[in-house]
């Protein structure tokens, strides 16, 4: 009897938690216009938590309103949940929308599902990261190699085209991590022979881990001239390391990636030289517009680069950069 009561309490508590969680989840699910006869576009993202995905979502919603279509935006809780993202894609296909926009977490796992979408006659466009499939008609993304090269150009100029640099990466697997690194490394090798890349390590975008990595790099290379962080967490880790070591601002040339309040602050107070930002709202707008075009069978470029932009103290509050900063 007693254990029944306990079990009942536990189950009730779990249900209450689950219900409240659902209640919160629903309002984030859909947005954009309504009404019958509208096109229905399903976007399946790599995530929804990060401000970046929120910006992609609001760009897409803006476009959806403008074009008068209905859209949904879904994504897993973390960018490692390949499986739960595939279930979301499956659910999207079963809903039979007019088009699907998809950002692949894993380039292989998505292949059979995209074939399924093709069989169901649902056109697919991709955003941010592609799937190794011929089904999608286009992809809207930041060309990460171009962005990495842009970071290298600015760092080299700031360092007088010579010196030692190290990289704190956020992933050695994930395509953005690999391409932002490769774009940077290749540019340095080809255009700036007097710049030496002494070390590349990965902190998974974890602020704490990245800070400890940067501190070890600085300890190991007393003559280090620059540090490049390939995403928000890596870049802030570098800034934290420099602050913890009490190095004077500007002693090291720090170049970051993405934008967030902490990076903007670091740029404004001189600890960080500058960073590369993307245009997530443009990714959202491009994705939705391409999805609508795809329903009409219009031809599009296979890759649509939505651009990457250098920002520093001088232009951080400019009209060109402000809308591209996702905090």
């Amino acid at each position: 009897m007693k254990s029944y009561t306990k079990a009942a309490i536990a189950v009730t508590a779990a249900l209450v938690m689950a219900l409240t969680a659902c209640g919160r989840g629903e309002d984030s699910g859909s947005g954009g216009g309504g009404g019958k006869g509208d096109l229905d576009i399903a976007l399946v993202s790599k995530g929804f938590q990060h401000q970046f995905w929120q910006a992609v979502k609001s760009g897409a919603e803006e476009k959806a309103k403008e074009l008068g279509v209905t859209m949904t935006f879904d994504g897993p809780a973390s960018e490692t949940e390949v499986d739960s993202q595939l279930q979301m894609l499956q659910a999207a296909i079963e809903r039979q929308p007019d088009a699907i926009g998809y950002a692949a977490l894993d380039p292989e796992a998505c292949v059979p599902l995209l074939d399924q979408a093709k069989q169901a006659d649902i056109p697919v466009v991709e955003f941010d990261a592609g799937c190794n499939s011929k089904v999608p008609v286009t992809i809207c993304k930041t060309d990460s190699k171009v962005a990495g090269a842009l970071a290298a150009d600015h760092m080299a100029q700031l360092m007088g085209k010579k010196g030692k640099v190290a990289i704190v990466g956020h992933s050695q697997i994930n395509s953005t991590g690999v391409e932002r690194r490769d774009g940077f490394v290749e540019k340095m090798k080809s255009d700036y022979p007097d710049i030496q890349i002494v070390d590349i390590q990965y902190g998974d975008g974890d602020h704490l881990k990245s800070a400890d990595i940067a501190k070890a790099m600085i300890a190991a290379n007393p003559d280090l001239g620059g540090l490049y962080g390939t995403n928000e967490g890596s870049a802030i880790g570098i800034v934290d390391a420099v602050n913890e070591l009490k190095l004077p601002a500007g002693k090291l040339t720090i170049v970051g990636f993405d934008s967030g309040q902490a990076q903007i602050d670091a740029i404004n107070n001189g600890v960080m030289a500058g960073a590369i930002t993307q245009d997530p709202m443009a990714i959202g707008r491009c994705t939705l517009e391409s999805a609508v075009k795809a329903t009409k069978g219009e031809k599009m470029d296979a890759v649509q680069d939505t651009g990457s932009f250098w920002y520093d103290k001088s232009n951080v509050s400019s009209d060109e950069i402000q809308p591209k900063l996702y905090k």
Binding site: Q172, V198, Q201, Y202, D212, I213, A216, M217, A220
Partner: peptide
């Protein structure tokens, strides 16, 4: 251990 390996620039993997 982790700090030492990082100082020696051993690959993260």
């Amino acid at each position: 251990l982790i700090n030492g390996l990082r100082i020696l620039a051993i690959q993260t993997e």
